[in-house]
Design a protein around this nucleic acid. Structure first.
Lengths: 195, 195, 195, 195
DNA sequence: ACAGACGGGACCGCCCGTTGAT
DNA sequence: ATCAACGGGCGGTCCCGTCTGT
């Protein structure tokens, strides 16, 4: 792997814990075998480093679980529920306990930096569009009830997932986390046809 | 108002925008007519200042909307819905657009400082208890259906409200915000008796 | 002497040698018994430190030799010549060999910083006005010939003095320095009445 | 033009504005279509780059106006005055407003680097010799009065020209500049025979 | 109870120069 | 002859916290 990507991956790890403002870029790369010269060569300043992490590390990871929905021909409700199950399985990983990186950065950086805000908005909208489109196609194919409003459900889905991460970040006991995932899953069940 | 509380209120304003890590305590009080001497007389260090803001400014505000639920004798679903309406009304205020302070701090500080984490956990649990208790009493009084699980609903309610703030923090268009408040309100309707 | 003035005086010494850009403020104060904290407290940044040196250290020194001219009732030509004699006497001092601080800074900083440029312009104009006024009064009192143009002479005087410092800064042999002072002195003689 | 000379010319442009210390060699060549590899292939370090600029760019330009004096058979006073006229014509060019490069560097670098000092000393002495020789030959040929002291006049000429550039570098109004050129020209007139 | 001065340490950014590869 | 990548040191700035005095 080239140095640039190594930096991005490593710095991202620290940013997950400290946030962007709390991130100390040079401290982090000191733990690798590279120096500030390399860091500054690849990224003109800290903000652009942050943007690169967003675009090249976070965005792919963030979209990844939802991309199969674009070509999924089954019931989108089932697919969304399987995503929730996937989230549940990773509960104990420290990475998951740090929450949704997009949501974390949105809360921290949106009021402070327009470059962050726009990139985060686009990412959230992408997922929203993927979900709502799949629900709409689900209606056409008879999987999803007519009364369901795809965009509204998609937004709600995202808010619950993000809010759930945040809610439980302060809680060592992760039962709330599971409870909310179940509740959302049950909520989605209500949009299946013929249940 | 005494100096101590003036500091707390003013610093809180800045912390809402910058977060706790981004907060520059001495820069903020420069905008008041006092100096660092006063700041460090009242608060031993920045962390204790943060705790004081949490306990003396944020906590009262955070609990305030829910406290009447303790003695409310009507349908708790209606009360929760009225809270959501209240949130909706303040959409345009800049203060609201900065999101839920408890949620913001939970995401930023929980992994970094146990003192913050505990205080935030307690606050979220307090609201959760108020809501779930009210729903339980609502069941006893025949307002809420038997199948409803008070704790689960309370947790979900909090997750949606918090997640909704976060989701829309990166969005200039606040329609998503309203949509999610409606969706949650509709969801709660499902727990009324005899609808 | 208070810390602020101690810093100004000491940093000025270094600025004379290195120029403003070459000045390393923290390196300089390391040689005193104060730290960067004190430096930054008294001067918000390096530029403002430079301005302060200009106004509080250089300006008084720069104007000092010319101030008596304001109330001088003798022949201004004689007074200007005595100034030149004074300059000649200090030839061997290292301070003098570093040249005219105002001229040095004018060459270095005028194209780079408007704040420097303006302050330097004002200082040079002040001396120019003092000299030209004295020459004018000298004409009225019959010391200076009618054909003399006070402003023109004042400007020329300053250019020669400044240029002479600069010319000889690259020369270890200071005879050129003395020669030019003499030439200027002789030139001024031409404006005396009845010689 | 080869790369070496392209670098010299381009870097010289920047050095005129920032000085040698303020010069950022790699920043400058970024504006060309080459990289640091080329720079450090041709010049071992920044100081040697500076010396090369002095010798290969500045020196030829600096001597150029005076070289014809070596073979000039007319009145040297007239020639020197024509040089002053030439300077006057270029007042509005930004290059001129940056002053005399030799004088600028002499003030900045003479106390800091012996290599700069010596090269600058030699250049100034060369011009001084050309001027004084021409005046001496002018005396022999009967153009210049016997009382004139060629070396003294040459030194004075240089000091005024250099000092005039410096004096007006801090002044947006260039009338002082013209005034001093005139004054010097008038001063030189005094050395003509039979006026 | 508060003001002013200062200590001290860290971080971002900057920039000179080197190295291996082509 | 030139480039991409990197090393390495340091300067300006920033900011938390302490101390003395009143």
């Amino acid at each position: 792997m080239d140095t640039r990507m190594r930096i991005l991956k490593r710095v991202y790890q620290d940013m997950r814990i400290k946030g962007f403002q709390g991130l100390r870029a040079d401290k982090v790369i000191e733990t690798m075998d590279i120096t500030k010269g390399a860091l500054y060569y690849h990224f003109k300043n800290k903000t652009l480093l942050g943007y690169a992490i967003l675009e090249e590390v976070i965005q792919p990871e963030y979209l990844k679980p939802y991309l199969p929905l674009l070509e999924y021909e089954g019931n989108p409700v089932s697919f969304l529920q399987s995503i929730l199950s996937g989230i549940k399985l990773t509960t104990e990983s420290t990475d998951m306990q740090l929450g949704d990186p997009v949501h974390n950065l949105a809360l921290e950086m949106s009021p402070l930096d327009e470059g962050f805000r726009k990139r985060l908005e686009i990412m959230q909208d992408s997922v929203k569009d993927i979900i709502s489109d799949s629900l709409y196609r689900g209606q056409v194919r008879g999987f999803v009830i007519e009364q369901a409003k795809p965009v509204k459900i998609a937004c709600f889905f995202q808010a619950v997932v993000a809010g759930n991460y945040g809610m439980t970040k302060a809680h060592l006991d992760k039962r709330i986390f599971h409870s909310n995932l179940e509740t959302l899953s049950d909520y989605l069940d209500g949009f299946r046809v013929g249940v």
